[in-house]
Amino acid sequence: MSALGGLKKKRRIQIIVLAVVALTVSTGLIGFAMRDGINFFRAPSQIVAEPPSAAEVFRIGGLVEEGSLVRGQGEQIRFSVTDGAASVPVTFGGVLPDLFAEKQGMVGTGRYVNGVFQASEILAKHDETYMPKEVVDALKEQGVYQEPDASSAVN
């Protein structure tokens, strides 16, 4: 009877060890798969204060600075994004969203190389009152955010 009890105990330990190994491997695989999908948000003043490495992909957000939008050859576009405290030059080689305009909120994904944010994707506001939460938070932190006028909102 004691030999049978020892076998059961050994089998339970093997199952527990196997479950722990499987859980560790699956957690590692999920983390590995998500490493490229996680993009941290930064405001222009954070980028100027602590420039990220050129290899890091992240999101930048703020207002498109008035008078900074310049269309280049082909689809090349240059503009600056600001949070009221700092401005960061941005280049983008694609088609801008229809609602993209100066003095409006935007969020871009890309890399900061040699003092210029090279965007691979640009997102613009959805309607006249929308602004991404990260942009609102960054503008509030700088003290330049103004609540949208409720009388101008369309229901």
Rank of each mutant, 00 (worst) to 15 (best):
84 G>I: 05
122 I>V: 14
22 A>H: 11
100 F>Q: 05
62 G>K: 03
57 V>I: 05
136 V>W: 03
122 I>T: 01
150 A>F: 01
77 I>F: 06
32 F>M: 14
57 V>L: 06
29 L>G: 11
34 M>D: 12
145 Y>A: 10
25 V>M: 13
9 K>A: 11
6 G>K: 06
126 H>K: 07
7 L>T: 12
43 A>H: 12
62 G>P: 04
124 A>T: 06
109 T>H: 04
87 S>N: 10
23 L>D: 00
97 P>L: 08
154 V>A: 15
61 G>P: 02
121 E>N: 11
39 N>A: 07
66 E>N: 11
96 L>W: 10
115 G>H: 07
85 A>V: 15
69 L>E: 00
149 D>H: 12
60 I>A: 12
1 M>Y: 13
82 T>D: 05
143 G>W: 10
133 K>H: 04
27 T>N: 04
88 V>D: 06
76 Q>M: 09
5 G>I: 10
135 V>A: 03
80 S>D: 11
112 Y>N: 02
27 T>G: 07
47 I>D: 04
46 Q>M: 10
84 G>C: 08
134 E>T: 05
19 A>T: 01
51 P>T: 10
6 G>W: 00
137 D>W: 09
128 E>C: 02
98 D>C: 08
124 A>I: 01
1 M>E: 15
7 L>E: 13
39 N>C: 01
56 E>P: 01
113 V>W: 03
121 E>A: 13
150 A>M: 02
2 S>R: 13
44 P>G: 02
27 T>V: 06
148 P>N: 12
136 V>R: 05
30 I>R: 07
123 L>F: 13
22 A>I: 14
21 V>C: 14
135 V>P: 00
72 G>Q: 08
8 K>F: 08
107 V>E: 13
81 V>A: 11
98 D>G: 12
65 E>Y: 02
131 M>R: 03
34 M>P: 08
153 A>H: 14
60 I>K: 07
